[in-house]
Design a protein around this nucleic acid. Structure first.
Lengths: 213, 213
DNA sequence: ACATGGTATGACCATCTGGTCAACTTTTAT
DNA sequence: ATAAAAGTTGACCAGATGGTCATACCATGT
C-alpha cells in the first residue's frame, strides 16, 4: 500500500476544501448572520464539531472565504499602461470579469452579500487596494480620452458599469433564470452575453473596434 | 381636544410605517434568515411583542415588504408602443429605474437579498408578471431594430444591462463609497451618473439622441 | 508493543430565535 | 359613566445558535 504524498491529498486539505465550498454556497445564499454552522456542516456532509475543528470559528471561515475571493480577483487584474490599445484593454477587462463571474458564481454572490451588509469585513480592502486599482485605471482612461482614443466619459463610472453588468449574472441569476425561463445559463449564453457587453460598452464610450477581430 | 381623523395618522398606521421602514433596513442588510425580530424591534424603537402584535409574524412582515417593493416597481412601468421614439423610451426607462434606486435604496437592497437567496418568495412574480413585462418590451426593441432605429442587439440583455447598471448604485453602495472615498452620493452625483448611463447605453446600441434635449 | 499527533464527534453550555399569552393601560363609541 | 375595542408589554416556551471539551479513533514511526 503506497500512501500518496501528493500535496493537497491529505485529510486536512481534502476536508478543508469540502468545507470551504459548502460554506461559500451557504454564506452566499443567506449572508453572514443568516448562515448557520449547522447548515454548512450538513452541506459539507460532516458533523458540526468537525467543521469547527478545521476552521476554528464561523468568523474565521467567513474571512478566509472573502480572502480567497479577493485573491481570485487580484489574480485577474492585469497591468496596463497608456500605450495599450483601449479597445483591447476594455474588452479583455470585460471578458476577464465575466469569466470570474462564471467560474466563481458563489464567490461573486458571497461578495455581493458582504457588500449588501455594508462590507464590515472589507472596509480596509475597499478603501485601500481596490481604491488604488480603480484610481490607476481611471488615470489611464483619462489619458486615452485626452488623446481622442475614446469619449471623455467618467472612468470610475465606466468601471462600475462594467463591474455591475458582469456581476449581475451571478448575483441575480435567480431573476435571470426566472425571466428567461431557463434552468441555467450555458456556455453559449455566456459567450453571447459577453459579446453583447463588449459591443455595447465599447461602442458606447466611443472606442474603435480592436484591430484584431 | 379635537382628536384628528386624518387618514394614516392613527396609532396602527403610524406604528406599522415605523416598523416597515426599520424592517426594510434590517432585512436589506442581513437577508431574511439573518434579520432577527429583536433587531427590527430595536431599530423601530418598540418592544418585540409590539412589533409582532402589528405584523403577525416575521414571514408576513417580509412578504409585505416585498409586495410594497413590487408595487413601487410596477408603478414605474410606463406603457410604450413601437411608434414611440427609441431614444426617449430608453432614456426614460434608465431615468425611472435610477430614480427608483435612489428613492428606495433599502427596498432595492431587500430585493437583491431576496434574489441572492434564490428568490424563494418571488418565484411566481419572476416567472409571471415580470417575465411578461420583459417579453413585451423585448418585442418592441426588436421591432425598432428591424426598422433600423437601433442596432440589432438582444433586447433581453439590454434590459438586464440597464437593470444591473442602475441597481448597482443601491446594492453596492458600500463598495462605491469606499472606492470613491465619499460619505454618500449626492444629487449631483446621481444626475451625473444617470447622464453617463444614458449617454453610453444609448450610443452603445446605436440609438440616435432624442430629438428634444 | 507502544507512544504520538492528527482526526472525529457526541454531550454539553449560555445565549438567542420566533412566537404566545395573560395582564395591563389607553382610546373610542355609546 | 361604562363597556368594548385597540394598544402595550414582560414573562415565558421550545428549539436553534456558536462554541467548548473530554473522549475516542487511527495511522504512523520506533
Amino acid at each position: 500500500m503506497t500512501t500518496m504524498k501528493v500535496p493537497g491529498s491529505g485529510t486536512r486539505a481534502r476536508n478543508e476544501s469540502v468545507i470551504l465550498e459548502a460554506a461559500e454556497r451557504i454564506f452566499a445564499r443567506h449572508g453572514y448572520r443568516g448562515a448557520s454552522v449547522q447548515a454548512i456542516a450538513e452541506a459539507a456532509g460532516l458533523p458540526k464539531s468537525n467543521v469547527l475543528y478545521y476552521v476554528g470559528s464561523k468568523r474565521e471561515l467567513y474571512v478566509s472565504l472573502l480572502e480567497r475571493m479577493m485573491a481570485r480577483w487580484n489574480a485577474m487584474l492585469d497591468d496596463i499602461d497608456e500605450d495599450d490599445d483601449p479597445g483591447e484593454v476594455l474588452e479583455s477587462f470585460i471578458r476577464s470579469k465575466m469569466r470570474l463571474t462564471r467560474q466563481h458564481p458563489q464567490g461573486s454572490r458571497l461578495f455581493a452579500a458582504e457588500v449588501l451588509q455594508g462590507a464590515p469585513f472589507l472596509q480596509s480592502y475597499l478603501h485601500g487596494e481596490l481604491r488604488e486599482w480603480v484610481r490607476s485605471r481611471a488615470r489611464i482612461f483619462e489619458r486615452w480620452a485626452e488623446k481622442g482614443l475614446m469619449d471623455p466619459v467618467d472612468p470610475v463610472w465606466l468601471i462600475f458599469l462594467i463591474w455591475s453588468a458582469t456581476q449581475h449574472y451571478a448575483d441575480f441569476e435567480a431573476q435571470i433564470l426566472g425571466i428567461t425561463d431557463q434552468a441555467q445559463l450555458d456556455d453559449g449564453d455566456y459567450r453571447a452575453i459577453t459579446d453583447f457587453l463588449c459591443q455595447v460598452i465599447l461602442k458606447g464610450c466611443g472606442v474603435r473596434a480592436p484591430s484584431a477581430t
